[in-house]
Design a protein around this nucleic acid. Structure first.
Length: 922
RNA sequence: AGGACUAUAGCUCAGUUGGUUAGAGCGCUACCUUGACAUGGUAGAGGUCCCCAGUUCGAAUCUGGGUAGUCCUACCA
């Protein structure tokens, strides 16, 4: 074995072997356990957030696989309609062409080509992370099978009246030329202006002043509204306004939507370009005048002067024209929420178009009930509220997208505008008995990507066929996801699955936090602060990282900012930490919080942990290989206190890990393992094994016992750790497993350790605590008194009880070795010890003679520090006990405990004071 | 505007049903190349548990109010 752990040498090798041997496939077993991967964008790449999520799922999967479940991790990707189409369009643009020149069919070929070309990135990354998904079942949302599912669902929902077509205002992305759903619109505050326009009354008797943030929409105004109770304007109701620049006469109407307090209390109403105005328009039967085209330029419904102008130019022109007419009253600075497309980043227009909708309200009802009645449970629980609040006020879902990349809507239209929905044109014709003379045209649009991913849990398993996989693995066990897609995906999956399967898609939704950078910023490509998990595994030089982060950035200003912060945050680039360290870091950060700040210090620490494990294994192998480890009954085996204690601690650790995993507290699981392996097994047990193994006089049976314990505990630790650190555990287990009497080709398929109650040994725990405290007491004196670590000490023991005596007797070897003692002798009755430094363990006094190594002042200072601590504690406890209310009302056990503390602390205090006195008298 | 979450050591974070001497890792200080590991060992320093009030014998923990920050939903032209 190498002296240090070198992850790069082993990771790929093991992954290839696991995959080749088919270990990732379900292995049978009575109970099924399945997780459906949230499908990443097929042409994208994994970032730290994905890495985190995959690590969590893999831990669950490996844990349950080892625990004997019939375990399936369903893998796959989605086609990410808008994102992918945008990317390919950009590529075409670079070549000086576009999709319209290419035509639909050719364009789609290009997209498929791009998918083939870039699709490997994600799967490569998943493999590097050690994710044990069943690759033989990989699915893609645009596969034939999944496309069938999409089509079946669409047709059935249409026939049930749960999908309909409607002409309404949608969120229109003028750059991508498609409608998008409410969820794909991000509204953020931006600085803008509030323009105040005078709208003259038609009768020439003055004007009303309206305020607007979007002057260009005035061309589509069809009314001015005031509040019905507004005394200022009551007399004007029913009159009309002469809308400037258009010459149109529009009414003054009353509607209590208007806020009297805001601005002048008069609102211009543009039903075609504002959601609220649209509703108001319906209430008042106002005409709807659309003044924009698909590009959000002014169309022919507007006065000629503005036609063809881009919306921004039109805005400037209108403001200037109004000003010239003397109708611009004032302009104020104003911050407003600007809706932008989450993909394109351009300002979204409310725009009147014909689109397809899902009746979400109907589907939501059972989906709400499923969470209310506990069929689906969110972890942490509070996310259920987020889910409810959205579901109870859900809007119909616009599912058509004016794109080419996606599932084409299976609807045909004849020349009269009749709609025929069916599997294909031929079927539609025969079903509706349409003659060949009728021309049919298929809908040009495709479905929202989320429409297909909403079917993910069952479409991946073969639906609409009633496959055996469906019967076994559906509903899935748990969905692991971020809270940012509860609405996008989780809710829609629940709705669709309940409707089509009459069962839930998963029993539990485990909602994890979002990974942020060290400054708490959300990681995003546009900010240039993303980290590719592979770069943490393999490491990356600073210059490469800077290049990676700034390449392809649209705004040079942001690029230089990204470069600056990258250089500051990673002055030396990123070290190679290996997959296991990265994964363990993820687990340690997976608490219930919403934000996870990724700190390099943590991963560094866990890299060291890997090395610690590696070296512990080296030590164990050095001592156990080619030795009798007591695995057969042939020879007697004696177990020392240390052996019994570490086995007992191991059982406690198993319980802790199981409990933590059951509650999705991976931070607790990882901490329990770290704590046990480093602070108990390495720091204490390995040290305690040395006196036995290296002591000539120790019995063979005792040595066998120690070797047996060394190897067994290590082997169990490896299995316990495997779901979290797959590579290092497999590598070491290959040698350690057989030595511990285990056989099998891989640790992956070994049983996960469970607590063996009979090995919990409270007496051994107590004895070991005592032993540790004695050793720590002596070490403390060494440290504080600056006694060289190598110098052997002869100590005296005083005042102990029978238990102290027997404990010392049984553990003298351990004590001498770990505290570096040449001797430990009880003071005889009445025997005066020389002047000593003192450590207390309960009533037992440990005396380190000060002769010739003394620093009188140092010891006095040390005693003073101890004394002060105890005095403070004592004062606190005595205060409590002198309070009659406490003594009366607190449980007797609590009071008793406090009393015992007082006694113990008083005794300790006396001893320390005695000690100080003696030293002062020296 | 409504709602949620967060506030604990210099940093990143744990802290179960109220009773601990409030913990871990990193960082820091001192000492140590002892036969698994210097990616290490030993010892140590470091906290007004955001503030105020309340409940209680007892509050980091429960209640109310406040401050700061983050996020979600809705939206005022």
């Amino acid at each position: 074995m190498d002296k240090t752990f070198q992850p790069a040498n082993i990771e790929t090798r093991w992954y290839e072997e696991w995959e080749a041997k088919g270990y990732f496939a379900p292995q049978g077993g009575e109970q099924a356990y399945s997780i459906m991967i949230p499908p990443p964008n097929v042409t994208g790449s994994l970032h730290m957030g994905h890495g985190f999520q995959e690590a969590l799922m893999d831990a669950l999967i490996r844990y349950h696989r080892m625990s004997g479940f019939n375990t399936l991790w369903q893998v796959g990707t989605d086609h990410a309609g808008i994102a992918t189409q945008m990317l390919v369009e950009r590529q075409l643009e670079a070549k000086g062409t576009n999709r319209h020149e290419l035509g639909r069919e050719k364009f789609l070929e290009k997209v498929w080509e791009w998918k083939e070309e870039s699709g490997g990135t994600i799967t490569r990354q998943l493999r590097r992370l050690g994710s044990s998904m069943d690759w033989s079942r990989e699915r893609f949302t645009m596969d034939d099978g999944l496309s069938d599912a999409v089509q079946t669902v669409f047709i059935q929902l249409y026939r049930e009246g749960l999908i309909y077509r409607g002409n309404r205002l949608v969120n229109w992305d003028p750059a991508l030329h498609t409608a998008i759903s409410d969820l794909e619109v991000i509204s953020e505050e931006e600085k803008g202006f509030l323009w105040h326009f005078k709208y003259p009354l038609s009768n020439g008797e003055g004007h009303l002043t309206v305020a607007t943030t979007r002057p260009e929409t005035m061309l589509g105004d069809t009314a001015v509204a005031v509040h019905p109770d507004d005394e200022r304007y009551k007399h004007l109701l029913g009159q009309t306004i002469e809308l400037p620049l258009t010459g149109r006469q529009i009414p003054i109407i009353a509607d209590d939507y208007v806020d009297m307090e805001f601005g002048t209390g008069c609102v211009k109403i543009t039903p075609a370009h504002d959601f609220n105005d649209y509703d108001m328009g319906k209430r008042h039967d106002l005409p709807v005048i659309n003044i924009l085209d698909d590009n959000a330029a002014i169309n022919n419904n507007a006065p000629e002067a503005y036609r063809g102008m881009d919306r921004d130019d039109a805005r400037k022109q209108i403001v200037s024209d109004m000003d010239k007419l003397g109708l611009l009253e004032k302009v104020e600075d104003h911050t407003l929420k600007v809706p932008r497309g989450d993909r394109s980043g351009v300002v979204i227009e409310p725009y009147l178009t014909m689109q397809w909708y899902v009746d979400a309200k109907t589907l939501a009802k059972p989906a709400i009930e499923a969470v209310e009645n506990g069929d689906i449970e969110f972890v942490p629980k509070q996310w259920e509220n987020t889910y409810f609040s959205w579901m109870r006020d859900i809007q119909d879902w616009c599912i058509s997208r004016q794109l080419w990349w996606g599932h084409r809507i299976p609807a045909w239209y004849d020349d009269e505008g009749n709609i025929y929905v069916g599997d294909n044109e031929a079927e539609v014709r025969s079903e509706h008995k349409l003659s060949d003379a009728v021309t049919l045209k298929q809908d040009n649009d495709v479905l929202d990507t989320w429409f297909s991913s909403a079917l993910w849990t069952f479409s991946t398993l073969g639906w609409p066929e009633e496959s055996e996989d469906l019967a076994i693995f559906h509903p899935s066990s748990v969905l692991v996801t971020g809270f940012d897609i509860i609405f996008f995906w989780v809710a829609r999956m629940i709705m669709m699955t309940l409707h089509f399967r009459k069962e839930v898609p998963f029993h539990t939704v485990y909602v994890h936090g979002l990974v942020r950078d060290a400054e708490g910023q959300k990681m995003s490509k546009s900010k240039g602060n993303v980290i590719d998990p592979i770069d943490l595994i393999d490491g990356i030089a600073l210059e490469d990282l800077v290049a990676k982060r700034t390449s392809g950035m649209m705004q040079p200003r942001l690029a230089s900012k990204a470069e600056k912060s990258t250089r500051k945050q990673f002055p030396d680039g990123i070290d190679a930490y290996g997959t296991d360290a990265l994964r363990f870091t993820y687990y340690s950060l997976a608490s219930t919080g919403r934000d996870i700040k990724f700190d390099l210090g943590r991963i560094e620490g866990y890299k060291n942990f890997c090395n610690k494990i590696w070296n512990a294994a080296r030590y164990v192998l050095m001592n156990c290989e080619n030795e009798d480890c007591g695995l057969t009954d042939a020879n007697d085996v004696d177990l020392t206190l240390a052996d019994r204690w570490i086995m007992s601690k191991l059982q406690e650790t198993k319980t802790e890990v199981a409990h933590a995993v059951a509650n999705y507290r991976f931070d607790h699981a990882s901490q329990a393992l770290y704590e046990f392996i480093w602070n108990e097994y390495c720091d204490w047990y390995l040290e305690l094994s040395k006196p036995v193994l290296w002591d000539e006089s120790a019995s063979e049976a005792a040595k066998r016992g120690t070797r047996q314990t060394l190897i067994r505990v290590l082997e169990e630790c490896l299995r316990l750790l495997h779901p979290f650190m797959p590579y290092i555990t497999e590598e070491i287990w290959q040698t350690v497993g057989p030595l511990a009497g285990k056989s099998g080709p891989t640790i992956m398929l070994q049983p996960y350790p469970v607590c063996q109650e009979q090995l919990i040994d409270t007496a051994a725990n107590a004895d070991t605590t005592w032993l540790k405290n004695v050793i720590i007491g002596i070490r403390n004196i060494r440290g504080e008194m600056n006694i060289a670590p190598g110098k052997e000490l002869a100590v005296f023991l005083k005042d102990g009880d029978a238990e102290d005596k027997s404990r010392l007797e049984q553990n003298e070897v351990f004590l001498k070795k770990l505290a570096k003692l040449s001797d430990a002798r009880w003071l005889a009755q009445g025997e005066e010890a020389p002047v000593c430094a003192t450590a207390l363990v309960g009533k037992l006094e440990i005396l380190v003679p000060m002769a010739d190594l003394i620093d009188k002042d140092a010891e006095l200072a040390r005693l003073a520090k101890e004394t002060e601590k105890i005095e403070k504690d004592l004062a606190r406890i005595q205060g409590k006990l002198s309070n009659p209310a406490f003594v009366d009302k607190a449980p007797a056990a609590v009071v008793e405990k406090e009393r015992e503390k007082v006694t113990a602390q008083q005794q300790a205090l006396e001893k320390l004071q005695d000690q100080a006195q003696r030293i002062r008298e020296m």
